[in-house]
Design a protein around this nucleic acid. Sequence first.
DNA 1: CCTTTCAGTGAACAACCGTGCACTCAAACG
DNA 2: CGTTTGAGTGCACGGTTGTTCACTGAAAGG
Lengths: 221, 221
Amino acid sequence: MAEQQVRGQQVRQAPGETRSARKDRTRRAILDATLAAAGEGSLSTVSLRRVAREAGIVPTGFYRHFSSLDEVGLTLVDESFASLRQMLRDVRRGSPDLSDVIRGSVAILVEHAHRQQAHFRFIARERVSGPPEVRVAIRHGLELFERELATDLARLPRSASWSSEDLRVMADLIVTVMVSTAESVLDAPVGRPEAEREIVRTAELQLRMIVVGAANWRSRD
Amino acid sequence: MAEQQVRGQQVRQAPGETRSARKDRTRRAILDATLAAAGEGSLSTVSLRRVAREAGIVPTGFYRHFSSLDEVGLTLVDESFASLRQMLRDVRRGSPDLSDVIRGSVAILVEHAHRQQAHFRFIARERVSGPPEVRVAIRHGLELFERELATDLARLPRSASWSSEDLRVMADLIVTVMVSTAESVLDAPVGRPEAEREIVRTAELQLRMIVVGAANWRSRD
DNA sequence: CCTTTCAGTGAACAACCGTGCACTCAAACG
DNA sequence: CGTTTGAGTGCACGGTTGTTCACTGAAAGG
């Protein structure tokens, strides 16, 4: 937070900065400004002019980096899922202990939701309300997730009695619960830790119910 | 300079129509136009002028009926939940047969999703992306739903081993699955009946897994 | 019958929007 | 070194937006 040439005039000069480094910096500023602007409203209510202003460039300068705001949106989707993949890696690193894997996974989900708030919100919102292209990209990302989770489930000891369809359906269900949990965390009241505790507890119970269901699956029909 | 009032657009005159009947008709036209306009984009991308144009009135005429588009949104939320309550009534009228209640409920959900497409889409979208007021209204409606479902579950024969928290959490989980299923149905490709069949099958299996989980709940810890 | 009411009108406004075009001027290049 | 490149500029354009205000004219009410 050293620089930032306050209002009116831009960071016109940064002495020893290479040309492409500056370009990257402006690109980043556009991405951040779009993410922030989408935070109040949605991607389709964001105006190019506002983004440009907040990024410290003139409106037409925007086109040196992206050809449309939708393109910025797609880039933000990529970034968000990169962070989600990191989360999955964290989950997998957790102890493969049977009962605590749920606690751990939910905790990691919640922590990431807080640390990547803007990106999580972006995904949650644009998943249903965004431009078609963006929606498709998000849906695709979630499907990849689901498939990864399904192969993880297949490695479980109890997986013998599960068909591949069972696996797909379970993974879908778990992802649905996780998405819903993340949404709840994101618009939980800020200054109320007990509200979040209840969301976490609910998610844990739900996942536990699903696990119980899965464990007793096919032993009955 | 005779009459230039031809405009071609709107039914300016309807001979034997009472004054308030006409007002209601215009109000309805505004609601429908808003619902339609929100269909491409979202409520916050809808412009008052477009709505007015499509409703056959001049922009300023809008204010005779609503003071803002958000107010129209709240009215649409009410309408949507009225239709959802009708759906719940249909579900309850179904056979209380244990295994087919799932099939029946999902079928009714899907049918309603098709018949009330615009309203369902509206709820699904504005639930996460709408103006704060609208989001709160939707969340409140879903909570009422959840509580009704919980009391229904409490009447089940197997409910002995479920705490009230268990009931709440189960109801929450089931509603989450239903919402997710409705969303899937809504943006399933139109001309592909087998895609919808798979969505239905997935939903049925998921609910069945939850039921199995619930049935074996608390018998283990 | 005359009077009141009020849904709908039409012009005007200031603010914002996306984008095309010709430009500058410093870093990168040969 | 001189030349080329390209990120960022400035202006101009036509368009849409929400909201104000004074208005009209027919149905409702006495």
